[in-house]
């Protein structure tokens, strides 16, 4: 091995090579960034804004804007024509396994919940993960009153009574989602009332 005597250039040559490589890597990274950045940004925006039509009926993903109200981050949902239809409220909190991130759809006066979507969750697969079932658990939140706290019940609750049917084997996950929604909606209603008082 040693005898092979690599024709390694001197220190100066190596320094140049490393500079050259660094320039090459740097420019390729810059190229990737410039080419892909808009797309990545769009994907990120779509993750939240893409859900708006399903959370607030008639809402537009393009027109709606993110604002702050009393320090709370909220999306003001507008229709295609620019009419104010409602709100989408990002909410998060501790679930059974890890944090759960939700989007809560509310009507214009924040009196009713119009929809719920799970952005991120790591609950137990097959049990707690059912909190993201659009036709099951999440459907139960649609049309619920927002002025009183939702509670988890076992068995079938009366429609729009503030009762949410617990998922079998995942009571804590169900309860966590309810609590996160309750807290976020309560805080937001307070902020909304405060801002309307000022106007």
């Amino acid at each position: 091995m040693e005898k092979e005597a690599r024709k390694a250039p001197g220190l100066l040559g190596q320094a140049w090579l490393i500079l050259l490589l660094a320039a090459f890597f740097g420019s390729s990274l810059a190229g990737v960034e410039i080419a892909l950045k808009p797309r990545i940004e769009r994907n990120k925006r779509n993750e939240t804004f893409g859900q708006i039509p399903f959370l607030v009926p008639g809402g537009s993903s393009q027109k709606s804007v993110e604002t702050r109200m009393g320090g709370i981050r909220v999306i003001r949902v507008l229709s295609d024509k620019g009419d104010h239809l409602g709100w989408v409220l990002p909410a998060s909190g501790q679930g059974f396994a890890d944090r759960i991130e939700l989007l809560v759809g509310l009507d214009r006066k924040a009196e009713r919940i119009t929809g719920l979507y799970v952005l991120d969750q790591k609950e137990t697969p097959g049990l707690g993960s059912h909190i993201q079932d659009k036709d099951g658990f999440l459907r139960g939140f649609e049309g619920q009153p927002a002025d009183k706290s939702l509670r988890v019940v076992k068995g079938r609750p009366a429609p729009h009574s503030g009762g949410i049917r617990a998922i079998t084997g995942a009571t804590i996950s169900s309860l966590s989602v309810c609590n996160i929604v309750n807290r976020a909606v309560r805080d937001f209603r307070k902020a909304l009332a405060g801002s309307e008082g000022k106007d």
């Binding site: 501790q94 679930g95 059974f96 396994a97 137990t124 804590i172």
Partner: peptide, 9 residues
């Protein structure tokens, strides 16, 4: 341990 933090909080 899952859920311990929730109870603790």
């Amino acid at each position: 341990f899952t859920g311990v933090d929730r109870g603790l909080a």
